[in-house]
Design a protein around this nucleic acid. Structure first.
Length: 247
DNA sequence: AAAGGTTTCAACCGCAATGGC
DNA sequence: AGCCATTGCGGTTGAAACCTT
């Protein structure tokens, strides 16, 4: 038998908190603390479940919460931490005093994610997402087509990053299908501009079918150290598409 | 001005971790 | 060791605000 959700009890309020409810909760916590969240609403006289009270306090009513927009420094910190930690919002929030995990998660999902583009670190995957995961080719076809200038700019930064990103990913053992696809895209765009041995046109670089093809090849090729070396060579233009296709 | 579309963010849900018995 | 209650976390939802046509 599955336990019913705590808020399923009849007669409990849900949704937006009223100012009176906030006041009751704050007054109670200031007086008695929040030793037991489950018992708290009853003790305080609130028609809410303990979970809802905890969330309201942690994300909104706590006195040390910082209000207002995130500063550039905070945004940079989030981006950096997300690169190394992934979606571990509570850990990221611990590094940003006054900011909540929920707030950081929202900021990330609303605009920081879009700011940094598609080469963010792979995220921990929920069971639900695994079920709904779309084909890798969608990622390629959804990619915006870079202009020549954008590519130039990208290559200037990704000359550094193509091999670096690959090696960073390898050293941290983050090797999943997103990694391979991203590695391909990064290495393709970098090498097409930096190496003549890579005979890829701009159209081919962003062509979804080639992306999918290479992804499939990489996937079947495996993920051991030799493969890493191969991919690094690929990224630096030492292996070309024909060789890749003949594997 | 109004309808429809998009974005934001507070709140909820379900699951995993933890701790007490 | 195993069960159960509680807490904490991350993903998701939906109402409200905002924007566009």
């Amino acid at each position: 038998m599955v336990r019913a959700p705590c808020c399923a009890r009849e007669g409990l309020n849900r949704g937006q908190w009223m100012p009176e409810e906030d006041k009751i909760l704050v007054d109670h916590i200031e007086k008695y603390g929040h030793g037991n969240w489950r018992a708290l609403p009853k003790q305080a006289g609130l028609l809410r479940c303990g979970k809802s009270c905890r969330l309201r306090w942690v994300n909104y009513l706590r006195p040390d919460i910082k209000r207002g927009n995130f500063t550039k420094e905070e945004e940079d910190t989030i981006i950096q931490l997300h690169q190394s930690l992934g979606n571990r919002w509570s850990v990221i929030a611990a590094k940003l005093p006054g900011r909540t995990d929920n707030e950081i998660k929202n900021v990330w999902n609303t605009y920081l994610k879009k700011q940094i583009g598609p080469f963010n670190t792979p995220q921990r995957e929920s069971k639900k997402n695994k079920k709904n995961k779309s084909a890798a080719s969608h990622m390629v076809s959804d990619m915006p087509v870079p202009t020549a200038t954008e590519q130039q700019q990208q290559s200037q930064t990704s000359d550094r990053s193509s091999a670096d990103i690959i090696e960073e990913s390898l050293s941290s053992k983050i090797v999943d299908e997103n990694f391979w696809l991203e590695a391909f895209i990064v290495s393709s765009s970098a090498s097409s501009l930096s190496s003549s041995s890579m005979d890829l046109t701009e159209a081919e670089i962003i062509n979804p079918s080639i992306g999918q093809q290479c992804f499939d090849l990489f996937s079947s090729y495996g993920t051991d150290d030799d493969d890493m070396e191969f991919l690094v060579n690929f990224s630096t233009g030492l292996v070309d598409l024909e060789e890749l296709s003949s594997l």
